Simulated scan of single mutants.
Amino acid sequence: MRLGKNKAIVAIARKLLVVVWHVLTNHEADRYAEPEKVALKFVVWSRKIGAQNRAGLKTREFVRRELMRLKMGEDLETIGWKSTKLIRLPSLEEGKAFLQAGTAGI
């Protein structure tokens, strides 16, 4: 039995809303999220917001801090950028310092 077009749209919208709700309330990434793709999104976001809004962090430091906030990408050392460049991420120990510095001002 087929659902009507509008019912299908509402069902998909509800599923998306549930995922977004869990991400926002638990401060964790979606369990199906791929760490490298999330890291690439953080690179783009980092470049859009500029150095002043990253609390003085370099892009790679900002990406590590945000991945640690989401509790993901611990084993991620590099991410591919624009098919030829690699961005080396700081170690987890360095990331902990960025995370503490980022939460100190809150």
Rank of each mutant, 00 (worst) to 15 (best):
M1E: 13
M1N: 12
L3Y: 05
L3V: 07
G4L: 07
K5I: 11
K5M: 09
N6I: 05
N6D: 09
K7C: 02
K7I: 05
I9T: 08
I9P: 01
I9K: 03
A11E: 15
A11S: 13
I12A: 12
A13G: 15
A13W: 01
A13N: 14
R14C: 06
R14M: 11
R14F: 08
K15Q: 13
L16W: 03
L17A: 15
L17W: 02
L17Y: 09
L17G: 15
V18C: 05
V20H: 01
V20Q: 04
H22G: 01
H22E: 07
H22I: 01
V23K: 02
L24E: 13
L24F: 07
T25Q: 06
T25N: 11
T25D: 01
N26I: 00
H27W: 04
H27C: 11
A29C: 01
D30V: 02
D30M: 04
D30F: 14
R31S: 03
A33C: 09
A33W: 01
E34L: 11
P35A: 13
P35W: 05
P35M: 05
E36P: 00
K37L: 11
K37R: 14
V38E: 04
A39M: 01
A39L: 08
L40R: 14
L40T: 04
K41N: 13
F42V: 04
V43W: 03
W45K: 15
S46Q: 07
S46W: 06
K48Q: 15
I49S: 06
G50A: 07
G50T: 05
A51T: 04
Q52H: 08
N53H: 13
N53M: 10
A55S: 15
A55E: 08
A55H: 14
G56N: 07
L57N: 04
K58H: 13
T59E: 15
T59R: 09
R60P: 01
E61H: 06
F62H: 10
V63I: 10
V63W: 03
V63E: 02
V63P: 03
E66H: 15
E66P: 04
L67E: 09
R69W: 04
L70S: 00
G73R: 10
G73V: 05
E74S: 15
D75F: 00
D75L: 02
D75E: 10
D75T: 06
L76G: 12
E77M: 02
E77K: 12
E77Q: 13
T78F: 11
G80N: 14
G80K: 14
G80L: 15
W81L: 13
W81M: 07
K82N: 13
S83Y: 11
S83P: 01
S83H: 14
T84V: 10
I87W: 06
R88F: 04
L89P: 06
P90S: 03
P90A: 03
P90V: 02
P90M: 04
S91F: 05
S91Q: 08
L92V: 14
L92D: 09
E93I: 07
E93S: 07
E94H: 07
E94Q: 12
K96S: 08
A97D: 09
F98Q: 12
L99I: 04
Q100R: 12
Q100Y: 05
Q100D: 15
Q100S: 10
A101K: 15
T103R: 07
A104K: 14
G105Y: 10
I106V: 11
